[in-house]
């Protein structure tokens, strides 16, 4: 059965790119979220196998959403997505419990590697 993934990013084009990479490689994208608040609600409702989570977003940023999701479910698998190698934000995310991170612009292989590692498929 295909692993279920939620994709969160405020840019529809990034969500489309991630969706294309993931579905082409056998994953099921069960929902797309536009901001951190939607991400928290969707995670609670749908309990995906993994979520990709952008950092810089309106309403609620990725770091805050990550904290809330992990407070509720400390086994959640979250891969952060960031537009630049923002060391501080990324280190904070990893300390909080993010599984891995991807830097935009990303390569398909990097996305898959991060997802497989997070899902222990390596």
């Amino acid at each position: 059965m295909a692993k279920r993934i939620i994709v969160t990013d405020d840019a529809p084009i990034i969500r489309l790119m991630l969706r294309d990479i993931l579905t082409y490689n056998g994953y099921e994208v069960i929902k797309e979220c536009n901001n951190g608040q939607e991400a928290v609600e969707a995670f609670t409702e749908l309990k995906p196998d993994l979520m990709t989570l952008d950092i810089v977003m309106p309403e609620k940023d990725g770091i805050q959403a990550l904290e809330e999701i992990l407070t509720d479910d400390d086994s959640a698998k979250i891969v952060m997505v960031t537009a630049v190698d923002q060391r501080e934000a990324l280190m904070k995310a990893i300390r909080i419990g993010a599984t891995d991170y991807i830097v935009k612009p990303f390569e398909n292989d990097r996305v898959l590697s991060a997802v497989r590692k997070a899902l222990c498929e390596d």
């Binding site: 840019a11 084009i13 935009k104």
Partner: peptide, 21 residues
């Protein structure tokens, strides 16, 4: 469409992040 608009959005996001870096 929404993808063309977000292409510009994301270009701006990535370029400005590169500069802040």
């Amino acid at each position: 469409d929404v993808y063309a608009q977000s292409a510009v959005q994301e270009m701006g996001n990535i370029l400005s992040s590169a500069i802040s870096n």
